[in-house]
């Protein structure tokens, strides 16, 4: 996935001039049931389909100081309002961080997760394995979300650079990126979600 360099991210956000046809369609699949962390979750979702968000349309730009990732998707009509819509992208803190295991102790992954609803906002999370995620470092994360019926468009931004626990980002280098999405209207939350199976390359233009 290409991350184009723009002069100023705020202008992109205002003007909506995204990657000009460079969007990536990211295929998503439901997180496997046996990987769910508790017996209750496995049992209660055994007969229920989840992972309804099958594709994310992703664009990324940076301006040498900050990264902006736009995520767009569509959901079927909601069956509940108990859980918020949510989307996240993950970056490896070390090159060896495994996406499918949600990181590990020595090689965590750094997640920026947006959710809507009553507690709307974007959260920085450090994951060291399935079911063990905690507060992540402050990377100046912000989000800009728009909902139009069943269609969502969320832009998540953070500063480039590195720091304790933060996934390093530097213009002119290549790192990895992974995605997860939760259809709250289908009661999706926690490990009940869809995800992008493996890392994709994220190429930050010089």
């Amino acid at each position: 996935m290409k991350c184009k360099r723009v002069s100023r991210i705020d202008l992109v956000l205002e003007g909506g001039q995204w990657s000009g046809g460079d969007s990536t369609q990211v295929e998503m699949i439901a997180t496997p049931l046996p990987m769910q962390p508790t017996g209750y979750v496995i049992k209660s979702w055994a007969e229920k389909p989840y992972g309804t968000i099958k594709t994310l349309t992703v664009d990324a730009v940076h301006d040498g100081h900050a990264l902006a990732v736009r995520l767009q998707w569509e959901v079927p009509p909601a069956t509940t309002t108990d859980f918020p819509p949510a989307v996240a992208f993950a970056l490896p803190v070390k090159a060896t961080s495994p996406l499918v295991l949600m990181g590990m102790a020595e090689a965590p992954m750094h997640i920026l997760r947006w959710q809507g609803g009553a507690q709307a906002g974007v959260r920085s999370v450090l994951a060291k394995g399935i079911g063990s995620s905690n507060h992540g470092p402050d990377v100046g994360q912000k989000a800009l979300a728009r909902q139009d019926g069943n269609r969502f468009s969320v832009v998540i931004t953070r500063v480039l650079g590195s720091g304790a626990g933060a996934a390093p980002l530097k213009a002119g280098t290549t790192t990895k990126i992974g995605f997860a999405a939760w259809d709250g209207g289908n009661e999706e939350r926690a490990g009940i979600k869809s995800f992008s199976v493996d890392w994709l390359d994220l190429v930050l233009a010089a």
């Binding site: 769910q36 962390p37 508790t38 017996g39 209750y40 979750v41 079911g131 926690a190 490990g191």
Partner: peptide
């Protein structure tokens, strides 16, 4: 406790 055992976040 069923509640405790169900929670994915411990």
């Amino acid at each position: 406790p069923a509640c405790l055992e169900a929670c994915p976040r411990k």
